[in-house]
Nucleic acid binder design. Structure first.
Length: 566
RNA sequence: UGGGGUGUCGCCAAGCGGUAAGGCACCGGGUUUUGGUCCCGGCAUUCGGGGGUUCGAAUCCUCCCACCCCAGCCA
């Protein structure tokens, strides 16, 4: 039974429609079984999240199953570390493969037997051509290929040679096993594709057992078949490979999964190529795979993104076949929407400006009530200290303010959030630089929040912290890693590195309210009027949190200024 | 005429012969002790282009155009 509630919440897409049709026709005995098949050669990124959400989401929606399978057919590029990290990331996104963790390497024996079967059927042969020769013989996009001189060896000879390949009698590159299909096909994948290559290299998971390794094209479809996968969902570039996968399945006469291709995710201001992300890591342009500016799952996790926001995003972008580039603003919208409801509000001053309340008793400290989240009263209240000396944001004061500036200026009044209305009486400056160093203000004792005088209205409300109680904290402001919406859009002769945003990280020494003293790694907050921040899981120490800006709040004042300045 | 795909608002994306959903972005207005949130309103006479079929076409036919993928013993 398919849950009707689940159905209405999920927007329609063509893959879902295909599955619904299949189910109506009773295909696959009504089963839906998908899989997420990463290669453990790098960290997962937001593009993989789209595939994860699709595969696990569809399985969940139709009461089916989704496997996690590592396509570990190339020991030269794959590592144990990636296998570990990928599982952590999928789990963090809150998907569960239960006991169905598989590896293509689980199937190497079966694949080997099937290869022998194809040899016996005269559908595969051992080729002595080297890599360059194979390329030459393959022909070009517009020119048909030529048959290898070794193409018509006897079954017996092929069997013997293939066995000796496995036994380690030949060096890397000396021989390959190829499928015998059609050197004239317009589809290059059908021009006798390589099934096995010789690689005298240990496999990160199964060690030295093999010195011949199956190619992805030979391993992938059969792995899906073995697992009883009903819908093999993959990206567009494999569309051309489908006829080959179908050919193998037909020759082997085994369960046929249905491959369906969709367009991979592309995002503005970011790069989603494993190769390029690896380069950023290796060349130290970022602080590892989990740098908060990276689009990797581990990076955005460290940045403070929530699994719910990512899942919501993956649902909203839809699934289709046209190449598309999604604006990063949609991701940020999903994040803000989620964090708005869940993140407790606190006050933090990023760039402090001292304020002295001249008519407030020097030795007095008040404990004021502050709601933790106006969106959710159940989150309760906390106490914040208030006294004669405070810090406000430098940008919340201007000596000569422009029109529509609602903040503090000489002679003007503002409300301090959860506290009193204050009035700027005097501006102190550095005689040398002319820089504003301190403000002397008066406060109106009748206007305390929660008191009868609180309904007096002023234009602006500022956040603040009590100077003697505030905790000095490192605050890291992150921005897009690239300054161009399309990082690959560069002048002739340059590469994406020239589009790196030099201002993607700004480290500040801010002042935060005392309740944040013991905030634990990973905790998320809204810094009032600034944005959402989380406690960094790498640089924080007990009692000494470091905050990452996850995403800023929407800033309509910035927009007004921008429009005013043309 | 190498093969395989895709073209609906600035960005995604529904739609599958009955007269263009929705989200993001953007622009107005209201509420607000976050210039946040929330609320209300605006935003494609038109679906890559030309022909055709039909009472009726984004949806069917036809020709054309643009863009993406494929020549790894990578995945």
């Amino acid at each position: 039974m398919v849950d009707a509630d689940k159905k209405v919440n999920v927007p329609p897409n063509f893959i879902r429609n295909i599955i619904i049709e299949d189910l109506e026709r009773g295909k696959n005995e009504g089963r839906v079984h998908t899989r997420f098949p990463p290669e453990p050669n790098g960290y997962l990124h937001i593009g993989h999240a789209k595939s994860i959400c699709l595969n696990f989401g569809l399985a969940h929606e139709f009461e089916g199953l989704c496997n996690l399978r590592f396509d570990d057919t190339n020991p030269l590029k794959e590592e144990e570390e990636y296998i570990r990290a990928i599982q952590e990331d999928v789990r963090w996104l809150e998907f569960d493969w239960e006991d169905r963790l598989f590896f293509a390497s689980d199937y190497f024996d079966q694949l080997y037997e099937w290869a022998i079967l194809l040899i016996k059927k005269g559908k595969a042969y051992v080729d002595d051509l080297n890599a360059d020769e194979i390329r030459e013989y393959r022909g070009t996009l517009t020119k048909p290929g030529k048959e290898s001189p070794y193409r018509n060896r006897s079954v017996e000879e092929n069997l013997d040679l293939f066995e000796r390949m496995k036994a380690g009698e030949f060096k890397n590159g000396e021989k390959v096993l190829r499928a015998k299909i059609d050197m004239n096909s317009g589809n290059l994948n059908m021009r006798d594709p390589v099934m096995y290559r010789i690689l005298h290299a240990p496999h990160p998971r199964i060690g030295d057992e093999w010195c011949i390794y199956p190619m992805y094209d030979w391993a992938h479809g059969q792995s899906d078949s073995i697992e009883g996968i009903t819908h093999s969902i993959c990206t567009l570039e494999f569309e051309d490979h489908r006829p080959l996968y179908d050919w193998f399945i037909r020759e082997l006469d085994v369960h046929a999964p249905q491959q369906i291709e969709f367009a991979r995710l592309d995002l503005t201001y970011t790069l989603l190529s494993k190769r390029k992300l690896l380069k950023l890591v290796q060349d130290k342009h970022v602080d590892g795979w989990d740098d908060p500016r990276m689009p990797t799952i581990s990076g955005i996790r460290r940045r403070g993104y929530t699994p719910a926001a990512i899942r919501d995003f993956c649902e909203r972008i839809g699934v289709a076949k046209s190449n598309s580039v999604v604006e990063i603003s949609l991701l940020e919208h999903c994040l803000r929407e989620n964090l708005n409801k869940t993140a407790p509000r606190v006050m933090a001053v990023l760039r402090p400006l001292k304020v002295v309340l001249t008519n407030y008793p020097a030795d007095q400290v008040e404990e004021l009530d502050a709601e933790n989240n106006p969106e959710d009263p159940a989150m309760g209240k906390r106490k914040i200290p208030f006294c004669r000396e405070l810090y406000i944001e430098q940008s919340d004061f201007m000596e000569d303010p422009p029109k529509k500036y609602f903040r503090l200026a000489p002679g003007r009044e503002v409300r301090l959030k959860h506290a009193y209305i204050i009035k700027c009486e005097k501006v102190l400056k550095d005689p040398q630089s002319g820089e504003v160093t301190e403000l002397h203000c008066s406060f109106d004792p009748d206007t305390r929040s929660g008191s009868s005088g609180e309904d007096r209205k002023v234009k602006g409300t500022l956040h603040w912290v009590s100077a003697p109680h505030a905790i000095q904290t490192e605050i890291r402001l992150y921005d897009h890693l690239f300054k161009s919406p399309d990082p690959n859009d560069v002048p002739e002769g340059e590469d994406f590195l020239s589009n790196l945003n030099p201002d993607s990280l700004e480290i500040l020494n801010g002042m935060v309210e005392p309740s944040l003293q013991n905030a634990e790694s990973g905790m998320r907050f809204q810094f009032l009027r600034h944005g959402y921040f989380c406690v960094d899981n790498k640089f924080s120490r007990p009692g000494k949190p470091v905050f990452n800006r996850t995403v800023s709040l929407r800033d309509s004042w910035a927009r007004i200024q921008k429009n005013q300045n043309g």
